[in-house]
Lab assay of single mutants.
Amino acid sequence: NQASVVANQLIPINTALTLAMMRSEVVTPVGIPAEDIPRLVSMQVNRAVPLGTTLMPDMVKGYA
C-alpha cells in the first residue's frame, strides 16, 4: 500500500510546509505520495489543513 502525506498538526492557510508538519501514513483515499515530502518543504497550503488530514495535490500551491 502506498503511504500518503498526512498533516501532523493544524496547518493554517498560506503556511509554508516544514518536515515537522507532515508524516507518512497509509490512508484511503490516497493523497500526495510520502516520497514527495522533501519536495513539499517550503510549499504553501492554500487552505487550513486540520491535524490528521491527508494532503491532496490541490491543497498545496504549485504542487499539482
Rank of each mutant, 00 (worst) to 15 (best):
E25W: 05
T18G: 04
A7D: 00
T15M: 10
V41C: 05
L40N: 01
L51Q: 12
D58V: 09
V41I: 13
M59I: 07
R23E: 03
V49L: 10
R47M: 11
I37E: 03
Q9I: 13
I11V: 14
Q44D: 06
G62F: 15
R39E: 04
R23V: 05
I11R: 00
T15E: 09
L10S: 11
L51D: 10
N46V: 13
M59K: 02
V60G: 00
A3P: 10
T54G: 03
R39C: 05
S4W: 02
V49T: 10
L40F: 02
V27S: 08
N8M: 10
Y63M: 05
T54S: 04
P50L: 15
Q2R: 03
R23D: 04
P57Q: 10
I37W: 03
A7Y: 01
G52Q: 05
Q44A: 13
M59S: 06
P12Y: 12
L19H: 09
A48E: 14
L55Q: 01
T28R: 02
Q44E: 06
P50Y: 13
T53V: 10
I13W: 07
A48C: 06
A20S: 15
K61N: 07
R47K: 12
K61C: 15
G31D: 01
V45A: 05
V41Y: 08
L55K: 00
P50E: 07
S24A: 14
P57N: 10
A20I: 15
V45N: 03
S42N: 07
A48P: 06
E25H: 05
T28H: 06
V45M: 08
T53K: 05
S42D: 09
G62V: 05
R47A: 09
T28Y: 08
Q2E: 15
T28C: 05
R47F: 15
P50V: 09
T28I: 04
Q44V: 07
G62N: 11
I32S: 01
G52F: 06
L40D: 00
N1L: 14
P33I: 12
P57Y: 14
V45W: 00
L51Y: 10
Q44W: 13
A64G: 12
A16W: 12
V5N: 00
T18L: 06
N46K: 13
E35V: 05
R23F: 04
V45D: 01
M59V: 07
I32F: 03
P29A: 05
E35A: 13
I13S: 15
L51H: 13
Y63V: 04
V45L: 12
A7T: 11
R39K: 14
T28L: 04
G31H: 01
P50D: 13
S42M: 12
S42V: 05
N14L: 11
P38W: 12
R39P: 02
L51K: 06
R23G: 04
T15C: 04
Q2I: 10
A3D: 14
G31N: 00
V41F: 13
E35P: 07
T15R: 06
A48I: 11
D36A: 06
P57R: 13
V5D: 01
A7I: 06
T28N: 09
V5F: 02
A3N: 09
V60A: 02
P38L: 13
A16L: 13
Q9K: 09
R39G: 11
M59C: 05
V30M: 13
V45F: 01
S24E: 10
A48S: 13
N14C: 08
I11L: 11
